[in-house]
Design a protein around this nucleic acid. Structure first.
Lengths: 167, 167
DNA sequence: GCTGAAATCGCCTAACG
DNA sequence: CGTTAGGCGATTTCAGC
């Protein structure tokens, strides 16, 4: 288990920073029960080791004018590594595509897209995505509403597993 | 357009904080070209108005022992508002479910799930998700690899639209 | 090794122009 | 929006466990 190097304080730090990434270090230290200097050292170490990849403001897309959110299920003609990588490279370049996951099963890729409106999404769909080389078919589903959108990891489960590992 | 109340400095602030949510206010002010106090006032206002919903550390799920990521496509028996809400409430309670979006088309919901391993995911799938009231069918797809996973909004598009609006 | 205490430096954040 | 200024947090240094 790769998280074995983390003790309970480290996990608490990750949980707190996931919940509020802009918390001051002294507040963080207070919450996890140590003083500020070692707390800051732990945060730096967690960043170094890759447990923390970065910090992001959570921006409301709708408020910024992105009224449309779409999941696009993409099937390719060829699934050779070369062609898979080529499609991924393309997806990375499209700003409207926020996530690109390669899947098992009949669908090759699922893309999460945002767009200001249906018209501009349709243009992206027909002129870029469907028109891209090696794309066999694209099925899209509009997001009607979003009941849950939590970034990251459920720390309740992390703690359960850590407790079980001590057994 | 709801983002009309934002000027270019506001949009720059949002873009910078989306890229690095832990940036100090003076650094942020320097980057957007104003002094620190008005910059902080703008940030507070953007939080108040709901453009910024929060700040989160971006935690590497795999490093923390969540080896498995799955998209689950769920179809319900009844799509009455009461039953839709009931399913959403359930999804919100399951820690392994990180996102729950209601879709148009044949699929009613798409869930993004994380899990430590296939065994525990299978247990969640059979004992909780498929067994939940009103669930007609669940199709799951494992994430083989992730080529792109960017939170939030493409600010290049925001700027294009703002420029066009001035046109 | 780790933590914690003290001191310095820099930032945050009011109040005012 | 900028400047000033006081208080607090961040970060290094050093001592102790």
């Amino acid at each position: 288990m790769t998280a074995a190097r983390l003790d309970e304080i480290d996990r608490k730090i990750l949980a707190e920073l996931q919940a509020d990434g802009r918390m001051t270090n002294v507040e963080l230290a207070r919450r996890v029960g140590i003083s500020a200097p070692p707390c800051l050292r732990r945060v730096r170490a967690l960043e170094e080791m890759g447990y923390i990849r970065g910090y992001h403001a959570d921006i409301d897309a709708r408020e910024l004018g992105f009224e449309v959110q779409v999941f696009a299920m993409v099937r390719l003609v060829s699934q050779s590594e070369r062609d898979l990588s080529a499609f991924e490279a393309l997806a990375c370049e499209w700003p409207l595509v926020r996530e690109c996951h390669m899947l098992n099963g009949e669908i090759d890729f699922i893309l999460k897209c945002v767009s200001p409106d249906l018209t501009s999404f349709q243009r992206f769909l027909t002129e870029q995505l469907t028109a891209a080389p090696n794309v066999a078919s694209v099925k899209t589903s509009l997001v009607i509403r979003c009941a849950k959108d939590e970034p990251g990891v459920p720390f309740s489960v992390v703690e359960e597993r850590a407790a079980a590992a001590l057994g």
